[in-house]
Amino acid sequence: MAKPEEIQRIKKIAWDLRADVVKMIGVGKAGHLGGSCSLAEIVATLYFAKMHFDPKAIHDPSRDRFLLSKGHSVLIQYAALVELGVIPRDEMGKVKTLAGKLQGHPDMMTPGMEAVTGSLGQGLSISVGMALALRLEKSTSRVYVIMGDGELAEGQLWEAAMAAARYKLDSITAILDRNRIQATGPTREIFDIPNLEDKWRAFGWNVLNVDGHDVGAILDVLDKAAEIKGAPTVIVADTIKGKGVSFAENTAAFHNGIMTQEQYDKALAEIAESGRMVE
């Protein structure tokens, strides 16, 4: 069980990361607010508590790897890497501009990125290659890969799921950000994939569930996943798309939406208030 002060610390960071996501999107410009906010607690827990990752040695071969297969949510990763000092803070104002290094999707030109993702469905396969290579090198590094629930319609993910099970890649922890909303509507309406947990089990994976906004539970479930040997584990994290920004919660409108000045101010105010409530 994680200590309460540790949980408080990570919760605070998660709200700080959300605020940075809103700031990076800004006013009058489209940005992937919803899927970034649904991941704040998971990303904060990984980068600031669980992962073996030294921000001063980002190429250390023994580091744990972090991959966003749902690459469009990269703003939350940028926020974490800014907070860790890997990405200079002034890059935040230059996101998706010719003057900056922060691309619309994960790119190796950005410090701290582990792979190019964004064409959906490829991240789990990349993590399979990493895990196999790490095994050859007798490394104990773990590979964390985050997928979206809409993304699961990509057939390649299931090819990768079979490969990870075939090679018993227990160094992979996959996390499914099940926020139940995709680009154009609820996943249930767009392309329903029922019995998700059963499907992963049938593909040879261990399945764990967690509330993706409960930091204490995330800490525990990540520990549990790392202990399971002989097969890969997927953590199905139930989350709220746009979590923490009332007008963006549970709506496809802010999958990649544009905020007015009023909405921008409201988003930052709500996030700041939620951050203050963490006691």
């Binding site: 582990e114 490829q122 399979v128 290579a133 790490l134 090198e137 079979m162």
Partner: peptide, 13 residues
């Protein structure tokens, strides 16, 4: 498809 992206993971390592 999985083979190609898996190769990317190998190369990145």
């Amino acid at each position: 498809q999985n083979m190609a992206s898996t190769a990317a993971g190998f190369a990145l390592t």
